[in-house]
Write a protein that binds this DNA or RNA. Sequence first.
DNA 1: CCGCGGGCCTGAGAGC
DNA 2: TGCTCTCAGGCCCGCG
Length: 293
Amino acid sequence: MPELPEVETVRRGLQPAMEGAVIVRAETRRGDLRFPFQPDFSARLDGQTVVSLGRRAKYLQADLSSGDVLLMHLGMSGSFRVVSNAAVTTPGGFHHPRGDDRTHDHVLFHMSNGAMIVFNDPRRFGYMKVLARADMASDPLLKDIGPEPLGNEFDAAMLAGACAGKKTSLKAALLDQRVVAGLGNIYVCEALFRSRLSPRRLAATLSTKKNAPTDHAVRLVEAIHAVLHQAIAAGGSSLRDHRQTSGELGYFQHSFQVYDREGESCSTGGCAGIVKRFVQNGRSTFWCPKCQR
DNA sequence: CCGCGGGCCTGAGAGC
DNA sequence: TGCTCTCAGGCCCGCG
């Protein structure tokens, strides 16, 4: 499922149930997700207060009173839902994305406020890991992650610098979490479309020989900002089974301009182009060859 | 450093 | 109805 806007939507949904509450018990219902759980996974969570729930790239990050941090990644199909006392006792109080199938409920956080937070992940590409906060900077999962695209430090100069000398496509560069954190296939396609840049363009063309940002880099950063802000405001995109923690649908998928719109006419005013699809680095790229250069 | 193919998993949808 | 095939929002590895 999830790219930055979906993870951020999940974070906001979980925040009221998690922040300030104690994880009374972290219950794992199988031995692994993408990787085996650490042997002390539950022991390091049980009894800890969640001081704050943040996000880094596509990771949810729960800061615990012990000084540990719980990292949670949703993979392709991971989702959370919050089951409150009311929902537990009220028939139909929660509508599960796929009916009542609880086969893939893999982790349950029983919280001191009565909420139960359920992690469901059919494909099990998601994972969770507990680590000491002091070790975050050196952790393999995080150490090479690039800047947050909505953070102050991310601008045209930084993006151009990260792309300077790269002998790869702009599409591939933007999917590289070391260049910028949190973008995935959908939002890369959308940001490239909105900035009128070709996914095939050489990444290095975002910078000049002196490593300064070009106008293209400025446009691209603006497009990334715009599409992420709009998607977060819409509660993310609901493709297939993604829902918010409440069970509500996000609705940004209705605002896709190229993603999954092969064959439709380009939405740019005055452009008579048709949205095309091709495979790039093993992923579908959707774009308008007429106005993206 | 780069692209590519394959793998990890399950489920939805299309076509027959 | 049910089968088979393809594809999917992420990420990692090994190969050439």
